[in-house]
Amino acid sequence: MAMIPAAIRRSIQTAAECPRLIRFSLKAPKGVEVEFDDGGVYNLSAEYLRVYSPAADSKIRSVGGEKVIYGRRHVGIMAAEPVGNYGVRLLFDDLHKTGIFTWDYFYHLGSNKFTMMRNYITTLKKHGLSRDPPRRK
């Protein structure tokens, strides 16, 4: 059996393997802070959450076969609506609201934040896109 790289193993953890969320705090409009029972505390910016929203989005630009969200540096979070006892739906000020962020997904985003953000910025640069919104003419 082939060895599974650590990054992939972490991303396919089951709910039973993920630490339990002990605190969720909306820091509107800038982001959220989540804390888990393994001691992990993550401050996640609105831009980062919007870019990695778990929902399909018609505003995503397909560039070279890659789905790329850009121009969201100044996006804000207006509200967080509980979804059962497993996550929240975030309402962003660009009116995106279809993604449900589970507690496990917040843990994944928090524990991989620096790598994921670096990959996002690299992808933008590769396609000549910016984190800043396009200028209106």
Rank of each mutant, 00 (worst) to 15 (best):
residue 63 V to F: 08
residue 78 M to T: 10
residue 84 G to T: 04
residue 54 P to L: 08
residue 18 C to I: 14
residue 92 F to R: 00
residue 58 S to H: 10
residue 67 K to R: 14
residue 65 G to T: 12
residue 51 V to N: 10
residue 103 W to G: 00
residue 84 G to F: 07
residue 86 Y to G: 00
residue 82 P to S: 03
residue 42 Y to C: 11
residue 79 A to K: 15
residue 72 R to G: 01
residue 63 V to W: 10
residue 31 G to N: 02
residue 21 L to M: 08
residue 35 E to R: 15
residue 98 T to A: 01
residue 36 F to K: 05
residue 20 R to W: 01
residue 25 S to A: 14
residue 60 I to Y: 11
residue 43 N to P: 00
residue 56 A to F: 09
residue 93 D to I: 10
residue 58 S to M: 10
residue 34 V to L: 07
residue 57 D to T: 05
residue 23 R to I: 12
residue 71 G to P: 14
residue 62 S to G: 00
residue 95 L to F: 09
residue 36 F to Y: 09
residue 32 V to D: 00
residue 41 V to Y: 03
residue 95 L to R: 03
residue 44 L to C: 03
residue 26 L to T: 03
residue 59 K to A: 08
residue 41 V to L: 09
residue 53 S to W: 03
residue 29 P to Q: 10
residue 36 F to G: 00
residue 39 G to H: 12
residue 50 R to S: 03
residue 22 I to V: 08
residue 70 Y to W: 03
residue 88 V to H: 11
residue 29 P to F: 12
residue 30 K to A: 10
residue 32 V to Q: 02
residue 74 H to Q: 10
residue 37 D to K: 05
residue 44 L to V: 03
residue 49 L to P: 15
residue 64 G to Y: 15
residue 78 M to N: 08
residue 31 G to P: 04
residue 82 P to K: 05
residue 33 E to F: 06
residue 89 R to D: 02
residue 19 P to A: 03
residue 92 F to K: 09
residue 37 D to I: 02
residue 83 V to R: 04
residue 96 H to N: 03
residue 45 S to K: 15
residue 103 W to R: 01
residue 72 R to C: 06
residue 35 E to H: 09
residue 23 R to S: 12
residue 57 D to C: 09
residue 44 L to M: 04
residue 32 V to R: 01
residue 70 Y to D: 02
residue 96 H to C: 00
residue 38 D to L: 05
residue 56 A to S: 08
residue 77 I to Y: 03
residue 71 G to D: 14
residue 93 D to M: 09
residue 83 V to Q: 01
residue 74 H to C: 07
residue 104 D to W: 14
residue 33 E to D: 02
residue 24 F to W: 11
residue 51 V to I: 14
residue 21 L to P: 13
residue 59 K to I: 06
residue 19 P to R: 08
residue 32 V to T: 07
residue 36 F to H: 02
residue 32 V to E: 01
residue 103 W to F: 09
residue 49 L to G: 05
residue 86 Y to D: 00
residue 22 I to G: 00
residue 76 G to T: 10
residue 42 Y to D: 03
residue 78 M to H: 03
residue 72 R to H: 09
residue 27 K to N: 13
residue 89 R to W: 08
residue 38 D to I: 05
residue 78 M to E: 14
residue 41 V to D: 06
residue 59 K to L: 12
residue 79 A to I: 14
residue 24 F to V: 02
residue 97 K to Q: 07
residue 90 L to R: 09
residue 51 V to H: 08
residue 45 S to I: 13
residue 27 K to S: 04
residue 88 V to D: 00
residue 68 V to H: 03
residue 79 A to P: 12
residue 32 V to P: 00
residue 61 R to K: 13
residue 27 K to C: 06
residue 99 G to P: 08
residue 67 K to A: 11
residue 105 Y to Q: 05
residue 91 L to V: 08
residue 67 K to N: 13
residue 93 D to Q: 08
residue 85 N to G: 07
residue 25 S to T: 15
residue 104 D to N: 14
residue 40 G to C: 10
residue 51 V to G: 04
residue 40 G to N: 12
residue 102 T to H: 06
residue 45 S to Q: 13
residue 52 Y to N: 07
residue 29 P to G: 04
residue 72 R to Y: 10
residue 24 F to H: 08
residue 100 I to V: 15
residue 89 R to K: 14
residue 92 F to H: 05
residue 43 N to K: 05
residue 36 F to T: 01
residue 90 L to M: 04
residue 85 N to L: 07
residue 80 A to P: 15
residue 19 P to E: 07
residue 38 D to E: 00
residue 62 S to N: 02
residue 19 P to L: 11
residue 95 L to H: 04
residue 33 E to V: 12
residue 94 D to E: 09
residue 26 L to D: 05
residue 37 D to E: 06
